[in-house]
Amino acid sequence: MKPAAFEYHAPRTLEEALGLLEEHQDEAKVLAGGQSLVPAMNFRLARPAVLVDIAHVPDLDRIDEADPASVTIGARVRHLDLEHNTIAGPLGSLIASTGRWVGHYPIRIRGTFGGSLAHADPAAEWCALARALDAEIHCRSTTGERTVGAGDFFEQMAFTTCLEPDELLVGVRLPRLGDSWGVGMAEFARRWGDFAIVLAVAAVERDGDSIAGARIALGGVAGGPVRAANAEALMAGRPATAETAAAAAAAAAEEVDPTGDIHGSADYRRDLVRAMVTRALDQALA
């Protein structure tokens, strides 16, 4: 469990980092918190010839709240800082309650938001959150910046995104949620801190006693995070009740097409979708 040999760079500026990525292309890997990349290197599942450590690139560790309509989370903001965020309103509480579920405390100290998205584990909490809120993901290279919606960022295949080898994920823009929104997050894992078998992130906008719109993202049921579109559609306009939540959960269980592994068969995951969506919506409607 020793990595293959690699070259290590610790650029001090964004330009320098992007230059290195351009120079080495798919020989290079960005090193952020290292909580996924380093284990993969130790197993020699990943064997980058060049590591570009972004630890010293300025400004990537900031949460930018200047815009009244959105919040932009820098790529290198740690899981733990998000768990303890001070973002106002339902968005802040959804980020906090989702962050608690990411791995264990030592992992949350080092692992980063951008790293989680770039790594794109099908059961990653942040990926589901980004998908639920239609996050806008800022990707930079020496040739400029492009912004990709979460729906296009994650590919069908696990651990795959639209990031080009020379691109750095620099930040993620999330819409603020007003007081008409309720949020919820539920996850089932074998043990505390394990990757989810199934997780659900929900945000529901109320219009009085009825539901104006709902966003439900699921992890652990496909190659990437997915939206439960039928369940969302079913909720719109219906009363904000436990019955609606249950009906939506049933619809979500129906529309997913999970594959099984040793921790859970496809059928079991489907049942878990129903349980997790119910729980997440119950919180959101509470």
Binding site: F43, R190, R191, W192, G193, D194, I262
Partner: peptide, 16 residues
């Protein structure tokens, strides 16, 4: 073998 790392060999932790 399907269980060759601690991702899959699940020992109870203090939380369990």
């Amino acid at each position: 073998p399907q269980v060759t790392t601690f991702m899959d060999y699940l020992m109870p932790t203090a939380a369990e």
